[in-house]
């Protein structure tokens, strides 16, 4: 049970956005490091630390390791580099290490921040909160129904595979045979994609669904004033950091 479940889902969304913006647009490397620390620390405070850390590190660590490997193996421009490691052809220079660390911090920060939302907030709740702020019914439907359809997808694939193997389809053997097996397997999936969509569309019509309408809700999501103010601050701060970055880039290209 995460503390996030008591908040309006838009608040963690705004916080995550601010952290991502800070990781990439604020002055570096301070922005990335601070953002990484807050995102990861925050995740533990919010009770989603274990899964969020796993997500963030699973990307940040191998990426930076691979970057270092590349820099060590691929000869850089001679002369300018300050090597911190030199073993025969394997050389690592300080800038390369700095870059790899920065990328790791930025990726870690962004993934951990988005992890707050992805791990801690139920997608349906987030969609409902967005709908309350004017997200059209069609967009909410597409997102929620897609999440719902995914667990079915694997089951359907297995059912089709079972049915066709019962008719003698060989799914092993050489590459040509396996490519050929694609059609009898993908065929029923694509045909039922269309026919099932027809049934779902009719079901939506039957329940009075209108893609552009504003819908009511069985369980409204509370949005206390404190959270609204926090969010406003976070959105404006994100905008300010972005504006600063654009201004710097502008001046840089002008001079």
């Amino acid at each position: 049970m995460s503390a996030l479940e008591h908040w309006n889902p838009l608040t963690p969304l705004a916080a995550a956005t601010f952290l991502v913006v800070a990781a990439y647009a604020a002055p570096q490397p301070a922005g990335a490091i601070a953002s990484f620390a807050v995102a990861l620390g925050g995740a533990w405070v919010l009770g989603v630390g274990r899964r969020v850390s796993a997500l963030a590190l699973a990307v940040a660590l191998p990426t930076s390791a691979l970057l270092l490997t590349m820099d060590a193996l691929v000869p850089g421009a001679p002369g300018i580099a300050t090597h911190i490691l030199a073993l025969g052809p394997v050389r690592l220079d300080v800038t390369a290490v700095r870059v790899a660390m920065l990328i790791a911090a930025q990726l870690g920060a962004a993934i951990a921040a988005m992890g707050w939302v992805v791990v801690g907030v139920a997608p349906r709740r987030l969609t409902r909160a967005l709908a309350a702020r004017g997200l059209p019914a069609w967009a909410a439907y597409v997102l929620v129904a897609s999440l719902e359809a995914v667990p079915e997808a694997r089951r359907h694939a297995v059912e089709v595979m079972d049915a066709q193997r019962c008719r003698g389809l060989n799914t092993g053997g050489g590459i040509v045979g396996r490519v050929r097996a694609l059609l009898p397997l993908a065929g029923p999936l694509s045909v039922s994609l269309v026919s099932e969509s027809e049934e779902r569309a009719l079901a939506l019509d039957a329940r009075g669904f209108r893609p552009r309408s504003r819908r009511g809700t069985l369980t409204p999501i509370a949005d206390p004033r404190a959270e609204r103010v926090t969010r406003a601050l976070l959105w404006w701060s994100s905008a300010a950091v972005l504006a600063w970055r654009i201004a710097v880039a502008w001046r840089g290209s002008a001079s």
Binding site: V142, S146, A153, A186, R200, A201, L204, F209
Partner: peptide, 21 residues
């Protein structure tokens, strides 16, 4: 229209199902 909307979740599922296949 509603039908095109209803196609999308099924297509997302097809992406996954074919990836699995």
């Amino acid at each position: 229209p509603t039908l095109a909307l209803a196609l999308i979740p099924r297509a997302v599922a097809l992406n996954l199902a074919l990836g699995a296949l």
